[in-house]
């Protein structure tokens, strides 16, 4: 309880502090450059040149310290040894290239990149197209969307239960093994099957992200001009043709946005792997490898090098996003 009081206190102090800062800064600015008197004109233009920066200052400070500064420190750390004391040049990267776990992580990350955005977008598109046609579509949508609210760790518990394996002679309580058994197959320790276990982990993220894809694509589908669909109906197109030839081409832009958003998420995926296999049985990914070297390996150099690899992989998307945003603001 003390803690919640402290949190409450922090909110009050934080919020009050923020408001007080903005208020006081504005007041001081108006006092230094009053908008009256002999030099009112010059004062007003000076004050309005400074004011935006007063509004921006807290944000710039936070962003600068917590997001920009670490990029440079990481680069610097990645060129140094485990404790950060000695300069080792590119030794950490050399180690990376030759490390089998790193190669495994890269391979797995590419698998994730290929499968998860494609599958989530596909299922999202299907769900969006289908739920828009039926009366209980909104309820269906809410239920498919719900996993978005569940934490990756919570989802990992949910899915680990599905993949549960009890072994010969015992009643299977994991859904997947029970189904396999009912169909006459043999039970498997799903999470320990090399290579394929990656896909069982991906299922968790696909399950979470499909709702996101569905919501956005559904809005895009509704935004399609009626006339194009009506024209196609008059020309005798089947529903499938309308969907594939008329609707989908019109929402390519949105599909791309969904795809890249999920791609970024996939590159940072960490909780699911940590909670379900911790990178064992050939399921390691970059983000978890970085976490491993940071906490268990206690090697800031190698961990930073892995983090920078993730950064490099994200960069093309970042540039693409910036280019798009600039096009819009113009």
């Amino acid at each position: 309880m003390d803690q919640l009081m402290m949190a409450g206190g922090t909110i009050v102090v934080g919020v009050f502090g923020c408001v007080a800062y903005f208020f006081a800064a504005n007041l001081i600015l108006d006092a230094v450059y009053p908008a009256k008197g002999p030099r009112a004109g010059a004062n007003i233009s000076r004050a309005s040149a400074i004011r935006p920066w007063l509004f921006l200052l807290p944000a710039i400070l936070l962003l600068g310290i917590y997001l920009v500064y670490p990029v440079f420190v990481s680069i610097w750390l990645s060129l140094r040894d485990a404790s950060g004391e000695e300069f080792v040049g590119l030794a950490n990267y050399e180690w990376l290239v030759n490390d089998s776990k790193f190669r495994e992580s890269i391979r797995n990350n590419f698998l994730w990149l290929l499968v998860v955005p494609a599958a989530s977008t596909f299922f999202g598109l299907v769900a969006a197209a289908l739920t828009d046609r039926i009366r209980w579509g909104n309820l269906a949508k809410a239920l498919i969307f719900m996993p978005m609210a569940i934490s990756f760790v919570g989802a990992s518990v949910i899915w680990k239960f599905i993949y549960d394996y009890r072994g010969e002679g015992r009643e299977e309580i994991g859904l997947l093994n029970a189904v396999i058994e009912a169909l006459g197959g043999t039970e498997q320790t799903w999470l320990a099957i090399p290579f394929w276990n990656n896909f069982f982990l991906m299922a968790v993220l696909i399950w979470i992200q499909t709702g996101f894809a569905m919501v956005i694509l559904s809005a895009a589908l509704r935004g399609i001009p009626e006339e194009t669909v009506e024209a196609a109906v008059l020309d005798g197109a089947s529903p499938l043709q309308i969907f594939l030839r008329i609707k989908v081409p019109q929402i390519w832009g949105t599909i791309a946005v969904v795809w890249t958003t999920i791609t970024i998420l996939v590159l940072k995926v960490f909780d699911i792997v940590l909670a379900m296999t911790n990178g064992q049985w050939g399921t390691q990914v970059l983000a978890n490898l970085m976490f491993d070297w940071m906490f268990r390996g206690n090697d800031a150099g190698r961990a930073s090098a892995v983090a920078l690899v993730i950064m490099v992989l994200v960069t093309p998307i970042m540039i693409w996003n910036i280019a798009n945003a600039r096009k819009e603001t113009r």
């Binding site: 962003l63 917590y66 997001l67 920009v68 500064y69 670490p70 990029v71 420190v73 990481s74 750390l77 950060g84 970024i264 590159l267 940072k268 960490f270 983000a287 970085m290 976490f291 940071m294 800031a300 961990a303 930073s304 892995v306 983090a307 920078l308 993730i310 950064m311 994200v314 998307i317 970042m318 996003n321 910036i322 945003a325 600039r326 603001t329």
Partner: peptide
Amino acid sequence: IAAVVGLLVVPLQLALIPLLQ
């Protein structure tokens, strides 16, 4: 504005060690 859009995708992993230090 461009910087904000860029920062949207910076991986958190990058920030952990420097900030902890």
